[in-house]
Write a protein that binds this DNA or RNA. Structure first.
Lengths: 347, 347
DNA sequence: TACCGTGTTGCAACCGGTTACATGAAACCG
DNA sequence: CGGTTTCATGTAACCGGTTGCAACACGGTA
């Protein structure tokens, strides 16, 4: 006889085969209610024998839960994002939740996802990663039926919502103290443009953290030693070049990201300046390339931020808390080969 | 009166409010069947007014489709993986399918996912990325109810299954010809260990591609100029060091990945060799760091591989094809600053 | 006027689980 | 020994969509 197309085995088939009702079969399956051990074993044996796979769709429908959490992530391609995602996955893999991702690479898509996702019944919870919501979307987001946790979002508008953030002020401060400790006095900063379509604020906070750290030492950074521009390596290189051509030249530059720090290094090289002898450079993030290049930088706990975010989310799904839980992750200074005491003699 | 907890709006509510049957409401919602324009508009207006959101869970259950595709990805954190994932997402975002990811970082997890996923009713299709299935799992995988597409998997066992692969032989050949063209004759190779728990074969194919390209020029690479080891920067550095200490020293090294190429460069630097004057280095992948470092390399079409994989998968979901569709992506040589003609005089 | 075809719409079953409530049997009690 | 608990299980409704089939309205035709 020809092989028949296998019909999918339902719990009713199991029940019939085992000579019990579907209710009992369901109970045996979930181990929730009390089922007489003998019956349970028989049912489980039948399930195994028939190759029964409970349909998640049916389960979700009757439970009224999606058993799914969504991660809205911007620029998946950046190593930071992937690492954070890994952290989220690590938590979710051991849970009953599926992890669906929504990659955002345009403002339209951001608005679309942020506007609809939390209300559509597609997920039981949402992680929003490195993606500040537009201010006007926040009120809606804070009253959604499903909890939303922000990771690496620093806009004030989400201050009262569940989130995990790296402490950018502390990170900037770390950078400042490191340079101070090495003896630098003429310090410059290169970071993102002050307003971006996505409303990123990390760069600004890192800058503020550093200037605050320098102030007690009587050091201020003049506007001529500050460069703001679009986030990118080449933009940073151009900004750095301009700053490095001034006299007196700064002996150290703090870049708001490693990507930008690499641009600074490129500028220095082009100008014939030796790093770190003529110029110290410190970045932020500790991306993969930082290690290759030997870049001194501030490391964020990326994986951990994902883990914590997912944990908070699961807890919120379980029971919404009164007070929005907030996790702060402390950054860490990683000293490599691009920072050293200044050699004024050379100047 | 106190604000009542909003009950979710179902299609029956809509139907009642619009004075039609649920069937008609459903048809209006999906625009599939013919509904009198007037009725349709009225229904859609009501849906809008009530804030109706169709429940995906219910939809999936009654359609008997999960509207979900799974991506099994190994080492999400590697930039290649993220870039491929973006390609998949680009296709899926415009479809009705959700994208759920299964990150694999251990053999156990691989076996678990590969063993269960294709049969569980969790997805309508599966993309397996850079993750060769264990041979014994292949027969089962090729007869699953849901289609499976492999991306960047080169094991012979999946040869007859839908997949998209970069042509590693061609890539190795590109590298070989590039070095030949520059005038190199003493060429070494550094790649992965010949057997890995995951059964990766890319490194081997790249090696083979190069040796095949060199053969017509009468150049063979002796075993003393070949280093196989665990995939990693430091392992590659150690292997390179050993090779570079031999006499005569090779004038060029082809590394099976950029990561390993960076290790080679580190080894050269430690030995006081200048790249590219004393030693040319060429890698594979064109990861982000490659550009920073100025590494000459073979670029794979990562994003494109994800796109194509997703497209194939959707097509297979739509209708299984007789012949497994296979897409080959041709690699591309990217010349940067780590390769140059050999300067024998210096040796 | 009877008949028919086309175009819209409604009825009700169905997808495959979960679970409130009812039922029946066994155990326990005075 | 009748009555009350307790435990295990069954009955059937429910989750919220989709869809095969029947029914109905309406205009055209004989």
């Amino acid at each position: 006889m020809p092989p028949v197309a296998k019909k999918t085995v339902t719990i009713r088939d199991v029940a019939k085969q085992a000579g019990v009702s579907v209710a009992t079969a369901s109970r045996a399956l979930n181990g929730k209610q009390v089922v007489k051990p003998g019956t349970r074993d028989r049912i489980l044996a039948v399930m195994d024998e028939l190759g029964f796979r409970p349909s998640p769709a049916a389960r979700r429908l009757s439970l009224g839960r999606t058993l799914t959490v969504g991660v809205v992530v911007s620029f998946l391609t950046r190593p930071q994002a992937a690492e954070r995602l890994r952290g989220v996955d690590a938590v979710l893999a051991d849970s009953e939740f599926d992890l669906v991702i929504y990659n955002v690479e345009s403002v339209q898509k951001r608005d679309h996802y942020l506007g609809s996702l939390a209300h559509s019944q597609r997920t039981d919870g949402l992680v929003v990663m490195s993606l500040p919501p537009p201010d006007e979307a926040v009120p809606a987001l804070s009253q959604t039926p499903v909890p939303v946790v922000f990771i690496d979002v620093h806009t004030p508008s989400v201050a009262h919502m569940p989130r995990v953030v790296g402490d950018d002020l502390a990170g900037g401060s770390l950078a400042g103290h490191h340079l101070l400790g090495l003896g630098h006095r003429r310090i410059a900063f290169i970071g993102d443009a002050l307003e971006s379509p996505f409303g990123f604020t990390s760069s600004r906070d890192r800058e503020l953290g550093m200037t605050t750290a320098l102030a007690p030492a009587g050091i201020a950074i003049g506007p001529e030693s500050i460069g703001h521009g679009a986030h990118g390596r080449y933009e940073a290189r151009d900004l750095a070049r301009r700053i490095l051509l001034r006299d007196p030249r700064p002996t150290a530059i703090f870049a708001a990201s490693d990507t930008q720090a690499l641009g600074v290094i490129a500028a220095a090289r082009e100008l014939g300046l030796h790093v770190p002898d003529d110029l110290s450079v410190i970045g932020y993030d500790d991306i993969e390339a930082a290690e290759y290049v030997g870049l001194t930088t501030i490391r964020q706990q990326l994986f951990e931020s994902g883990r914590r975010g997912a944990e908070i989310l699961l807890a919120e799904i379980d029971r919404r808390s009164e007070e929005a839980p907030i996790a702060y992750l402390t950054p860490e200074l990683v000293v490599r080969a691009t920072t050293a005491p200044p050699k004024e003699g050379r100047g």
